[in-house]
Design a protein around this nucleic acid. Sequence first.
DNA 1: AATGAATGAGGGTTCATTCAT
DNA 2: GATGAATGAACCCTCATTCAT
Lengths: 212, 212, 212, 212
Amino acid sequence: MVAHLSKEERSRQLLQAALECFGTKGYHQTQVSDIIEKAEVARGTFYLYFESKREIFKALMEELFEKVTSQIQSLPHDAVEKIPSQLLGNISRVTGLLFGEPLLTRLLVNEAVGLDEEQDAQLRNFYNQILDYIHRGLKQGQDMGFVREGNVQVMALCLLGSLKEIFYQSLLGTEKTKKEEVVQELFRTVAGAVIDPPKLFLVENFLFASRI
Amino acid sequence: MVAHLSKEERSRQLLQAALECFGTKGYHQTQVSDIIEKAEVARGTFYLYFESKREIFKALMEELFEKVTSQIQSLPHDAVEKIPSQLLGNISRVTGLLFGEPLLTRLLVNEAVGLDEEQDAQLRNFYNQILDYIHRGLKQGQDMGFVREGNVQVMALCLLGSLKEIFYQSLLGTEKTKKEEVVQELFRTVAGAVIDPPKLFLVENFLFASRI
Amino acid sequence: MVAHLSKEERSRQLLQAALECFGTKGYHQTQVSDIIEKAEVARGTFYLYFESKREIFKALMEELFEKVTSQIQSLPHDAVEKIPSQLLGNISRVTGLLFGEPLLTRLLVNEAVGLDEEQDAQLRNFYNQILDYIHRGLKQGQDMGFVREGNVQVMALCLLGSLKEIFYQSLLGTEKTKKEEVVQELFRTVAGAVIDPPKLFLVENFLFASRI
Amino acid sequence: MVAHLSKEERSRQLLQAALECFGTKGYHQTQVSDIIEKAEVARGTFYLYFESKREIFKALMEELFEKVTSQIQSLPHDAVEKIPSQLLGNISRVTGLLFGEPLLTRLLVNEAVGLDEEQDAQLRNFYNQILDYIHRGLKQGQDMGFVREGNVQVMALCLLGSLKEIFYQSLLGTEKTKKEEVVQELFRTVAGAVIDPPKLFLVENFLFASRI
DNA sequence: AATGAATGAGGGTTCATTCAT
DNA sequence: GATGAATGAACCCTCATTCAT
């Protein structure tokens, strides 16, 4: 028997336990028994806070989505010169978040996929928001003349895909490269992919200046 | 009851049915019952050909891996000028394959992930082969002086990620863009990301020349 | 939270809530949660007043048994001529009670049955009391010569069964007939069933006289 | 492990086991485990034949309804003189059936009631069919002039109620009276309740003649 | 007297796999 | 080769009851 906790605390405790289980063993390999054992709560208590195993996973995902999107600041509408730093900031923050939470990252790239219709839709929606953000950034860049011509949607997909793959591999442990290096190289690659070649030196200048 | 078939044919029939089920409903949502119903085969027959549900999925994945890797030709070791066409050819063939087999693609990006340890290892291995291929191509390009400097591993990840994302989105049906356009844009983005800027005009020339 | 009530009042409140739940949804479909919600009382409070869900149901049933049996006055031992009015009075009062309390009636005919050994015994006991009352009445009538000959037990069962069915159907809402008509017809049917034919005219006279 | 049976036999076996469990312990006290233990089958086998515990109960009830209604022959439209024997035949057959199957009878009167909405509706429907049969019989009798005047519906309810009560008590074991006696007395009571008094002697004659 | 978070035994259902025919 | 009835471990969820506050 466990001391009575506030609804908030107990919920957190369960979410934390669930995160550890899902993140370590995966959704299907995790049983409700695992979660309640880790949280040291009785079976019934679990269902007092979450309707089902599926539901606690969903809650976890929503929390993650919220965390990620809250790290992203919209690009400035006017000052071209601020865009690179803003972009770098966004990429850096998201990278920092995901590198710092490998379990959540594993959920995102490994477990949230192919679970069921609802989860797939939720995930799609999440990525679409990010795609949209990138898409708008690129469009703006084109208008401002420093993003090269071309199919913005494909560019956006490439950028998102690059990011996802970096995170995926990072959590596989294959890549031990530290965050700073990854962000720098990612930024350069991404810049090369979309920046109008004559303007690329601006990016290089910027990176040089922002180097710590 | 079905007419007696050769081992080979019956196996094909089951694989086909399994592909349709897994590709449509996903691994976990698919029951052995679904597969045998679609294949019009008795329950016991299934286990005559495959040891388990997991095993037929594995067989399917191996087939897919084989198909994809067989489309990739290694880059020429000498002639720099042949590399872009070779690369474009590889990307184009793989894209063609995956665009033509949405079910297999869905398996690859949606179902093969987070299944279990073994599957994750298999998938990791597959992607590592491709990463390796890209990695070597880039390294070669650097030596030959037309790939820009930088962390080749990160570049490779970005390229792979871009490809994966394109396929992922294409199967979501979000992107209706036809294969040719996708390949072209992908190639340009990828080129921009990794080619030494002064050499980029070569790529443009090449794309112009290869346009049908 | 509810203002502090006296033990008596709180108990009543819970019984009332329970009656509404059991009477509407049935015993098994009713959860303790339903009762405490309706009573606007905390979970623990419920168990302060009743030992269990089963116990509050039992209390309700005992109350009902008490109500019903209190409506029944024993037949006069001497004056034959008073018996019909007494009988009609009893039937009329019980009918009035049950028609006026559809929820209790539903409990009696629909939920009290097949619950468990104890409940079945309690119910059997209740009906046996009534059967006994009828049995004695008939016996007396035979002695007095105006109930026909025959197996008094079977007659008694028929009378009880007729009553029960009338109440059962009345609460199903199938029968909209108003109480007075039902009582009259019931009385006549019952009379025909058991009265010595030559004496039947007495009943008719009586009914005619008692008509309002 | 059990020998392979035909679908029909296995289904029968399960129904029989279920009948014994439900009839003895009641619906709620019976677990699926009880049924499969009695039938000596594995858990999964049960669900091969019946979708759920609820469903096998329903099947049992439907079988009972079928059995009962198949015992009832409709009354002759013309020959008045045949009606009593027909009626007595029907009552006798149904009584024989239910006296011979105490478990089914227990299901009918004790368990089928208050289970859930669907079951209640099914039961109501069954009784309505019987009520209808009685109602039509009485109406016909009135037209033919040997059923007394009065509210036919109430009469029908009384008849049905009488029957139900007889069966209910008979299965309680309170009444050890043998079938023949019960039927005779029931018939006489019922006759007295509804037959036009001057015609009653016909019934007595009939009963006398049919006495074995 | 009242609260409501915590408990955990209990029970129904699923579905991959086996095996007698 | 093929069949499909039978298996049973696995697992999720419910809900009456308890108890610390």
